[in-house]
Amino acid sequence: MKKSLLIIALAISVISCNKEESPVSKEFKTAYVDTVKLMEEYTEAKDLEAKFKAKSESEAKKFEVEEANFKAEVANFQKNAQANGQAWAQQKDAELSQRQQRLQYAVQSASQKLQMESATEMDSLIKGVKDYIKNYGKEKGYDYIYGTGDAATVLYAKDQYDITKEVIKLLNEKYAKSAKKEEETKK
């Protein structure tokens, strides 16, 4: 009899403990964003990529002209080296070597400058996206929003938690509004 009373008392206490809400057993509102897809489909990111691609192509064309001129000068040097003598050839060779080094340095310098400028603007864009997602999460009442993609922080998530499309849509709308305002202020 004592054993059955003890078992009933123990069962009642376990049941009553389970009815209390513990903060650990609370369900969290979670979602995730596919960061690769986000950067591929976000208009501002596409515009930034196109901007730096155009700058890179412009710089490349500028250096292509200089390189063609340099190659023509080298060909002219090789053609006239014997006719103008060894002293002239050595002096001209030294000048051409210096010019080649300056050209290589200019190409490298322009490339590094472009990369730094691109990285700075991309960092700014990413910070803005992170801030936007943080505010979005607060506004929508999420406890967690995870990122997936190249630097995945989620190994699995149900598709129902994917808010990537919604975030892309809202970011693109925000960017379009700011681009429109910028155009209006330029006029």
Score class of each variant (00 low, 15 high):
residue 104 Q to A: 07
residue 159 D to V: 12
residue 130 K to W: 08
residue 155 L to R: 11
residue 160 Q to F: 08
residue 125 L to P: 03
residue 160 Q to N: 13
residue 110 A to Y: 05
residue 138 K to T: 09
residue 121 E to H: 01
residue 132 Y to K: 01
residue 118 S to L: 13
residue 139 E to C: 06
residue 129 V to P: 00
residue 133 I to M: 00
residue 146 Y to S: 07
residue 133 I to W: 01
residue 155 L to P: 05
residue 159 D to F: 09
residue 158 K to W: 10
residue 131 D to M: 15
residue 148 T to M: 13
residue 149 G to L: 04
residue 145 I to A: 01
residue 156 Y to I: 03
residue 148 T to Y: 12
residue 114 L to N: 05
residue 128 G to H: 05
residue 108 Q to N: 15
residue 105 Y to I: 13
residue 110 A to L: 06
residue 111 S to L: 08
residue 113 K to Y: 10
residue 110 A to N: 04
residue 156 Y to W: 01
residue 130 K to Y: 09
residue 120 T to H: 14
residue 150 D to L: 15
residue 159 D to L: 10
residue 111 S to I: 10
residue 131 D to P: 10
residue 139 E to R: 04
residue 142 Y to D: 02
residue 103 L to D: 03
residue 103 L to T: 00
residue 103 L to E: 02
residue 129 V to K: 01
residue 149 G to I: 04
residue 154 V to E: 07
residue 142 Y to F: 00
residue 118 S to P: 09
residue 140 K to A: 01
residue 114 L to I: 09
residue 143 D to L: 07
residue 106 A to V: 08
residue 157 A to R: 01
residue 157 A to G: 06
residue 119 A to Y: 03
residue 132 Y to M: 06
residue 156 Y to A: 05
residue 104 Q to W: 02
residue 155 L to I: 11
residue 150 D to M: 15
residue 127 K to V: 10
residue 106 A to G: 11
residue 119 A to V: 07
residue 128 G to L: 00
residue 144 Y to P: 04
residue 110 A to E: 11
residue 139 E to F: 06
residue 160 Q to S: 14
residue 147 G to Q: 12
residue 122 M to C: 08
residue 143 D to W: 09
residue 134 K to G: 13
residue 155 L to H: 10
residue 138 K to A: 09
residue 149 G to S: 04
residue 148 T to G: 15
residue 154 V to C: 10
residue 130 K to F: 08
residue 140 K to C: 02
